[in-house]
Simulated assay, not measured.
Amino acid sequence: AIAVANNVQVAVMAPTEILAHQHLASFKKYAEMAHMTCAILVGGTPAKERKAILGGLAEGRIDIIIGTHALIQKDVIFKELGLAIVDEQHRFGVLQRGDLTSKGLNPHLLAMTATPIPRTLAITYHGDMDLSIIDEMPKNRIPIVTKVVDEQRLKKVYDFMKEEVAAGRQCMVVYPLVEETEKSDLAAAVEMHANLSENIFREFKVGLIHGRMKKDEKDVVMDAYGRNEIHILISTTVIEVGIDIPNATVMLIEHADRFGLTQLHQLRGRVGRGSEKSYCILVRRNFTDNSKKRLRIMESTNDGFVISDEDLKIRGPGEFFGIRQSGFLKYKIADMVTDGPILRKARKAAFELVKTDPNLNQSVHELIHTRFMSEYQDKLVQVNIS
């Protein structure tokens, strides 16, 4: 509202159409009260409607636009974009976030996520991005219990899921692939749906949802799940964001060792949204040191920022001047995680230096200027993208 009152436009980018439509419903409720115009632009927007929206953005008739990657298409032009909001920021690449902010003249940027990517967390450690943390759970929420199990214990897990469904609650089962391939022995959602519905949970209604389904097909499944007509939902990671079913209390993640920490935490967040106690069960089938470390972290905390901190230690911060969002920097001395205060002091000293000699023209700064231009000149485009 403050942005619109200052005669600039607001863009909200979400990773999925489901989440974009949820945001539209929330924004519209308040936008109409404040007499602000609000619209949505996604991949499935009809051509005629899309043309009208593009015209409204270019002429400034639309104050707030909510959308998916459709917002960063070349023909999307704003009259004056002043605030860009990226929800579930970890789902977008550096260049995609940069494409959104490039739609305006240095607009303000708000990045939202429960689990910041290593690159963004590292940028905040350097003091180059302000950080606000919401560390309180919504009212009446109970912390999710997370357990790692081996496949030998699956029968007990299935029995527990039956008890939850019999008590009127719902469950989700996530698989990493849609179908088996010659190169992978991962349990596939489509095949396991047949197995679980015909053999394990015959007395319950078992649904299936995955990314290759058409939007209308997915909507039918999710609507049925929302009405508790589907008791157990088998899915790929398509449910990672934008699914809000307060009655779902059990999340079973197959081959949990194949998922990253961020993805596991996001999937876990699909349960525990109601007042009932909820559970996230991680099935481990591969016993590498890294996978054991990741799953141990998941068992020990529900805090997304603690998880992101551990992810930063495991994967490294990536490139500040490039597009890699993880990977290790070649520091000679500094440690990204433990040397935050020193790094911020170094940053302050660098700002003071540039304040007195913006172009590094003084002879005492000649070596810094030479090295900076030789190593970083071609990478300055990405440095301002969080």
Results as ranks from 00 to 15, higher is better:
I232V: 13
N228E: 09
M222K: 04
G207H: 05
I234V: 15
D223P: 03
E217V: 05
S235L: 05
E229K: 14
D219G: 01
I234S: 07
D219T: 02
E229M: 12
G211V: 02
E217S: 06
I232H: 05
M213P: 00
I234T: 10
S235E: 02
D223M: 10
K214W: 08
N228P: 08
R212Q: 15
I239G: 14
T237S: 08
T237A: 12
M222L: 13
E229H: 13
L233A: 04
I234C: 12
R212L: 14
R227M: 07
I209H: 08
G211T: 11
I232C: 09
V220P: 08
T236W: 10
A224G: 01
H210D: 12
R227D: 07
I239L: 15
V238N: 01
G226E: 03
I234P: 03
I209F: 13
V221T: 14
N228H: 11
I230S: 04
D223L: 09
K218G: 01
K214D: 15
L233R: 03
T237L: 11
V238A: 10
D216H: 01
Y225C: 11
G226S: 08
H231I: 00
T236C: 14
I230Q: 02
D223K: 12
K215H: 13
I239F: 12
R212N: 12
